[in-house]
């Protein structure tokens, strides 16, 4: 019942495994075989066989193949063509041919192209202008112009601007304040004012602060305690909050958060692309963060 997001599920799972140094325990061949059936004629990739192509799963697929160092499993030229075809007049990106526009898709587009070394394929100035038009009074970013700031969206837009080398366009002090105010007395982070804490924001907020060079604006020790309290003792997975049902999504972002906090049992994670740093280095990708 989860095949409508399976490609992302695989990405969450194997990245979590790689961060813990256990990637070799996954059945690489069957994953690659699965992926061969998910690319469509238009170049886009679906969540699984029989599901329509979308930028969300196209990025997941390229992340997986990057981890496996096996990008040629799919037709990359077509992937680039697909992404290019989804850029709108105003520089924004639709998630698929049905036209839903969201800054998440701007991130998916440039993150995928960066991993493929093809950032030249889109109209960059317009893409930047659109993302900046989604910047708000609190320094954060929303889905579309006028949408309220949300930590997940902030991650996408700050990540986008990092990838395209325009991080100086963010008001880092103002946004950093909004981000560090996401930390609650439990140590956990929420995604918007007055909301409950959730382990996945350990990633969206923390990675954004890391890109802005302001990781020290939250209390790392307290956040670490919160994330660890979300780990389920029976299964080892992580839930959104202590005592809830675990899933792969929260397991990856819990681990990735711990890695950013300097957990030595895990590989260092790249705050922009949520892949191990060693993978990003292997690609020779240079992403300039603020310091």
């Amino acid at each position: 019942m989860t095949e409508y997001l399976r490609m992302s599920g695989v990405y969450w799972g194997i990245t979590a495994m790689d961060l813990t140094g256990s990637l070799t325990r996954m059945d690489r061949e069957s994953i690659l075989e699965f992926m061969r059936h998910c690319q469509h004629d238009c170049g886009g990739i679906g969540a699984s066989q029989g599901h329509d192509p979308h930028l969300l799963y196209t990025l997941s697929a390229v992340q997986i193949l990057t981890l496996f160092d096996n990008l040629n499993t799919i037709d990359l030229e077509k992937v680039v063509e697909y992404i290019r075809s989804l850029q709108q007049k105003d520089g924004s990106f639709a998630g698929d041919k049905w036209g839903e526009v969201d800054t998440r898709f701007s991130f998916c587009a440039v993150a995928t192209l960066a991993l493929l070394g093809r950032l030249d394929a889109i109209r960059m100035e317009e893409a930047v202008t659109f993302v900046l038009s989604c910047m708000n009074f609190d320094g954060g970013f929303g889905c579309r112009p006028g949408s309220e700031s949300h930590a997940g969206q902030v991650y996408c837009c700050v990540g986008f601007l990092t990838i395209v080398g325009r991080l100086h366009l963010v008001n880092a002090d103002l946004l950093g304040w909004w981000l560090c105010e996401r930390q609650l007395p439990s140590g956990g982070l929420n995604g918007r004012p007055e909301k409950l804490p959730d382990v996945c924001y350990s990633w969206w907020v923390l990675a954004s602060l890391r890109m802005l060079g302001r990781l020290c604006w939250i209390d790392s020790k307290r956040l670490r305690t919160f994330i660890l309290a979300c780990q389920d003792e029976e299964t080892g997975g992580f839930a959104d909050r202590p005592g809830d049902v675990v899933d792969l999504f929260h397991t990856l972002f819990g681990l990735a958060g711990l890695s950013l906090l300097g957990e030595t049992q895990l590989k260092p994670v790249n705050p922009v692309l949520c892949l191990p740093e060693e993978t990003i280095q292997r690609l020779g990708l240079h992403l300039q963060l603020l310091n």
Partner: peptide
């Protein structure tokens, strides 16, 4: 507000 020590110290520095 000790949770935001890092922020306040940086703001004071600024």
């Amino acid at each position: 507000d000790p949770l935001r020590t890092g922020y306040y110290k940086d703001l004071r520095s600024k």
